[in-house]
């Protein structure tokens, strides 16, 4: 399976070294298959976001983290690499839990990344902005106000704009962290439909704690609990015939022992 893995981790450990020092990820060895949508599931606080951010070196921007192990992107090391970190990050898109508009126009939000990484003419840039706004089903809603501030859009629209902005850099992998959790049900559904379309063409790794989202979207599932990967595999198999007791409990909606309680106990 590691042959067609878009991205995989090797003995990945993550430590938060600040005031409340803790190990957030323990010996993660996991491969995310190319051109599939993988969901990372698990109770809140188990390390899903931490795992996602370690894939594109987003922990590097904070001083209070330490990472051991390696991540391979298309076979190339992400951490022990001679390339500048921004170059590596540009190959991995990331959409955060909180919908985020860059402080500029809708147009510039999409054009910002591509303009930095490639030299593009005005016409090419216009095309590119339209292409990616269409890809996330936002074009028709914003085509008449491309040059007004993106912050004036609704949160649901901003979340789709964030998707377009990430995709416009043409990453090999797209990371999504609970991208629907801040949205109302209708906006959430629109984002979900967009992801359903996108998964035809992209390798998507998506954190969620919503089982119905996993059932609708996932090809592949990784179950994380207390900073460890408990089980990973084909979505159908894992959901219908979980191999571990913890997975069975979580998938069937049983209460899990609270992570925070466990940590302090």
């Amino acid at each position: 399976m590691s042959d067609n893995a878009a991205i995989r981790t090797e003995n990945l450990n993550l430590f938060y070294t600040g005031g409340h020092a803790s190990q957030a990820l323990k010996d993660i060895n996991i491969a995310f298959p190319a051109n599939r949508l993988t969901t990372i599931i698990g109770p809140s606080g188990c390390g899903k976001s931490s795992l996602l951010k370690s894939l594109n070196r987003l922990h590097d921007i904070h001083q209070n983290t330490r990472i051991e192990g390696e991540v391979y992107l298309g076979g190339e090391p992400v951490y022990q690499s001679r390339r500048p970190v921004p170059d590596i990050r540009s190959r991995i898109g990331y959409v955060s839990q909180k919908p985020t508009a860059l402080p500029m126009s809708i147009y510039r939000n999409v054009a910002y990344g591509p303009r930095i990484h490639r030299s593009l003419g005005k016409a090419e840039l216009d095309d590119l902005v339209e292409t990616y706004l269409r890809k996330v089903n936002l074009w028709n809603e914003v085509k008449d106000r491309l040059h007004s501030p993106a912050a004036q859009l609704s949160v649901g629209q901003i979340q789709r704009l964030s998707l377009a902005r990430s995709l416009a850099v043409e990453p090999e992998v797209l990371l999504c962290d609970e991208v629907t959790s801040a949205l109302d049900p209708i906006s959430a559904q629109k984002v979900e439909e967009t992801l359903l379309q996108l998964k035809e063409d992209y390798t998507i790794i998506m954190v969620t704690h919503l089982m119905h989202q996993v059932e609708r979207l996932a090809d592949h599932v990784v179950f994380v609990y207390l900073g460890e990967v408990v089980e990973a595999g084909e979505a159908r198999t894992l959901l219908n015939h979980p191999g571990k007791e913890a997975t069975r409990r979580f998938v069937s909606g049983h209460a899990m022992p609270d992570v925070a309680l466990r940590a302090t106990a």
Binding site: P86, S96, L102, I116, S166, V169
Partner: peptide
């Protein structure tokens, strides 16, 4: 400024200065 704005910037492959 929200942390996720910076994260969004960095994930686009922007440098620290950008």
């Amino acid at each position: 400024v929200a942390a996720n704005l910076k994260e969004s910037g960095y994930s686009l492959g922007l440098t620290r200065l950008e």
